[in-house]
């Protein structure tokens, strides 16, 4: 099977719910994924929030604090880590161990596992993202995004874009090792573009423009009001569609 088939109606509601809770449990048992995808953004937020200079307004950040500049990055971090490393290594491991093959002989198509895993990731990313925003704004007085609707749109589209990338990696990487090998550079490029290493506001103008075309950069710039919003959102939409189409085209079950 080289193309992806959607989980069809042959899956019973009870079957899918059991699958969903199983996938959630398995994800929570994956310690590196939990540490990097849930623990790290919250830990970084707590550290940054407690650095005194990070909560002072800076002229070169347009009067915002360093923490303000980091909030979008940390908010999206969970989605990024889960999509680019958690998902591909999980699917790679299942494929490697023949678990996808075993499933395809049951009434549940292997696509069902993929769907369940995507739902689990989206749920975790949404909860962690919301938690980061809540702790930052309520606990550390970080500024809320200027345009809430645009920020949320960027967050949702950005998550979709990185999930698309993650699916593509999951689809083409033969095993868990290869998946990690492909996922980590994508992760680092996105982290850089999202200002984890240095806030986007402090980047040279040319670099700001470039990182605006990387999904994570586009989300952070939309949130922080750098560059043109509609271009950023278009970048994310195009990335989502393209990566998903490529993932569907190249996805290998075995």
């Amino acid at each position: 099977m080289s193309t992806m088939t959607l989980p069809s109606l042959r899956m019973t509601g009870h079957g899918f719910r059991t699958l969903l809770s199983t996938q959630a449990r398995l994800t929570m048992r994956d310690i590196p994924v939990v540490a990097a995808g849930i623990g790290l953004p919250i830990l970084l937020l707590l550290i940054f929030g407690n650095i005194p200079s990070f909560t002072e307004p800076h002229a070169d950040l347009g009067g915002r604090t360093t923490l303000d500049a980091f909030v979008p990055t940390l908010t999206m971090m969970s989605a990024m880590v889960l999509a680019c490393t958690g998902l591909p290594t999980f699917i790679g491991e299942l494929r490697e161990r023949g678990a996808l093959r075993r499933l395809s002989a049951s009434p549940v198509p292997a696509a069902g596992v993929l769907a369940a895993q995507l739902i689990v990731i989206v749920a975790i990313a949404a909860v962690v993202g919301a938690l980061v925003v809540a702790i930052a704004t309520l606990g550390f007085d970080a500024a809320a995004p200027k345009h809430l609707a645009t920020a949320v749109a960027a967050g949702v589209l950005g998550s979709a874009a990185v999930l698309g990338l993650g699916l593509l990696i999951a689809g083409v990487a033969g095993n868990a090792g290869a998946a990690a090998g492909m996922g980590i550079p994508v992760l680092i490029a996105n982290f850089f573009s999202g200002g984890l290493y240095a806030p986007v506001e402090k980047m040279p103008h040319v670099l700001q423009t470039i990182v605006g075309y990387v999904p994570f950069g586009a989300v952070v710039e939309t949130w922080s009001g750098i560059g043109t919003t509609w271009i950023h959102l278009s970048v994310l939409a195009v990335c989502t569609v393209l990566a998903s189409l490529l993932a569907i085209r190249f996805f290998r079950w075995e």
Partner: peptide, 29 residues
């Protein structure tokens, strides 16, 4: 699928799934 059970070569389960969970999961299908 409903009346044919299979045990295949080179097929396994996620390593972190317990025996009981595996049986419950497949039973639910």
């Amino acid at each position: 699928r409903q009346f044919l059970g299979v045990q295949l070569q080179e097929s396994g389960l996620p390593p972190k799934l317990t025996v009981r969970e595996a049986l419950r999961l497949y039973a639910s299908f």
